[in-house]
Amino acid sequence: MKNNVKIERIKLSITQGELANRVGVTRQTIGLIENGKYNPTLQLCIAIAKELNKTLDELFWEVED
């Protein structure tokens, strides 16, 4: 699943490890989500969105060009 997690995380100067600690997963899981290799549960999506101060739409909604 394509998403904007990596872009928004970098904008806030947070590392994968820091974000992982804050939402209670491993750094690998954050990496997999950012690379579209793992679809997180809604619960984790919300936790990530809260940490990045974004809405679910802004992070995970695909907009077709």
């Binding site: 209670g24 997963v25 491993t26 690998q28 899981t29 793992y38 997180p40 549960t41 984790l44």
Partner: peptide
């Protein structure tokens, strides 16, 4: 559940 890790991917 007690046998499983906390990380949801794992």
């Amino acid at each position: 559940s007690f046998l499983l890790p906390d990380d949801e991917y794992r």
